[in-house]
Design a protein around this nucleic acid. Structure first.
Lengths: 239, 239
DNA sequence: ATCGAAGGACGGACGATCAAACCTTTTCTC
DNA sequence: GAGAAAAGGTTTGATCGTCCGTCCTTCGAT
């Protein structure tokens, strides 16, 4: 009976109606911040992109204008013009208070996505996926001194795992949740030794995935995520 | 490099902008179908509910009208009136073609949510939660002959676990994904022996959660979900 | 010099949503 | 029995987001 009441809390919680404009800014902005669309990348032409996104061109232009003003993209007119990802990217802005207030919930969501991805990747990974993932892991080894570069490749690795898991929803969820995590950890110092231990976990994770060892992948991933969570718990309120 | 292309596929995928009206019908309808709002339940008064949902009263009424016409709720006027969940509920309509086409993706999403919930519940469950979960598990034992009743309690158990996990997002995600699963499995026969083995897995799951054995919970949950997936794989295309 | 492909700008139409009233029904209270 | 109160039901107008179509501007390729 107390259960019905608890569920009702979430059933009757506010409906979050993002507009197409907001959602587009979010999607493109996150992809850019995560490095999924690296600096210099040319976006599809407006007339094509609005079709792909399923929105009107005017709505897409609103989003692109916002991203232009925030410095994430710039436009070049004329033939061979287009909209390009800026280089360098503008500095990330500090996490919002609401973001900080919900940091644990964000970590929980991330946990779910990453565990699901770990299990499915272990079940479904292809040889070619493993080659790409190994390459990314090697890149990570060489980026211990540059957190920005490290984080970029780290994201690629995790999103790459989601792609190897073969679930479109989980790829989407992974990018969303990595975007949220990036906002949280951008301002936190990550000394090389922390990244080193993170890499150890990456290796264990990939080894388990290679052996199709779902449980091993879960174990490695759990430890991997606990590292982040402990750091955040020490620095943020409500830890 | 091939990776950037793959990610772009999902980055540029259509933005799905549900209207407040649609989202409200979905939320309330799912909660009702899942039994989170049992027949006879009185919803909060319109003037209060629209405030809680963060929408205008006219929008809420659109949603309530839709749910009334589909037979899920009915309204009584006058003082002491209100909007009530119908008893009995209208029969579920068959899964849509798109639903069937994406069934594997739905299972993947479910896997992620359930694994995350399993791990977090094992870490955070309270004694009182365990009492309620045990009670639900006992109810399940007595419902082997009535799949409708079984499914209802099954959902309660899984949502209850999500609540024990203490993550609002995961409670929401769990109800969403259980709603999707319900659409998929409503028309599939579930003989008592299948439910019996499902119960065995429930017991193992709860035992692991009780021992704060995250890995055991993951293992039990994985096996539990594989049962469903195998059944679906045998009956639906793309298996 | 011209054409084509790209971004840029404008305006009308439409639908979803909101806000604020007001109406009708029923029950509780005095 | 006469309100008052609490609920659903109705109406109206304004606002905003979005779509669609059209046209303008820029500039590299031919």
């Amino acid at each position: 009976m107390t259960e019905a009441v608890l569920s009702a809390e979430t059933v009757f919680a506010p409906v979050r109606s993002q507009t197409a404009f907001e959602e587009t800014v979010e999607r493109l902005g996150t992809a850019i911040k995560l490095g999924l669309l690296p600096p210099g990348t040319r976006l599809p032409a407006e007339r094509e992109l609005c079709g792909r996104l399923g929105i009107a061109r005017s709505t897409l232009r609103q989003a692109l204008t916002a991203l232009t003003q925030s410095g994430h993209v710039f436009a070049i007119r004329g033939r061979r013009g287009g909209t390009f990802v800026s280089d360098p990217q503008p500095p990330a802005d500090p996490p919002s208070p609401q973001m900080l207030a919900r940091w644990r919930d964000t970590c929980d969501r991330r946990l779910a996505v990453e565990l699901g991805v770990a299990v499915l990747a272990a079940e479904r990974v292809q040889a070619e996926d493993l080659l790409a993932l190994d390459e990314l892991e090697r890149t990570l080894e060489d980026s211990l001194e540059d957190f920005s570069a490290y984080r970029q490749s780290d994201i690629r690795l995790h999103v790459g795992l989601a792609e190897a898991a073969g679930s479109p929803s989980l790829v989407r969820a992974m990018t969303e949740v990595q975007g949220a995590m990036t906002d949280l950890i951008a301002y936190i110092a990550h000394p090389p030794q922390v990244l080193e231990s993170s890499n150890t976990q990456h290796r264990r994770l990939l080894a388990a995935v290679r052996k199709s060892d779902s449980l091993g992948a879960v174990k490695a991933m759990t430890e991997h995520l606990q590292g982040t969570e402990h750091v955040l718990a020490g620095l943020l309120p409500g830890g």
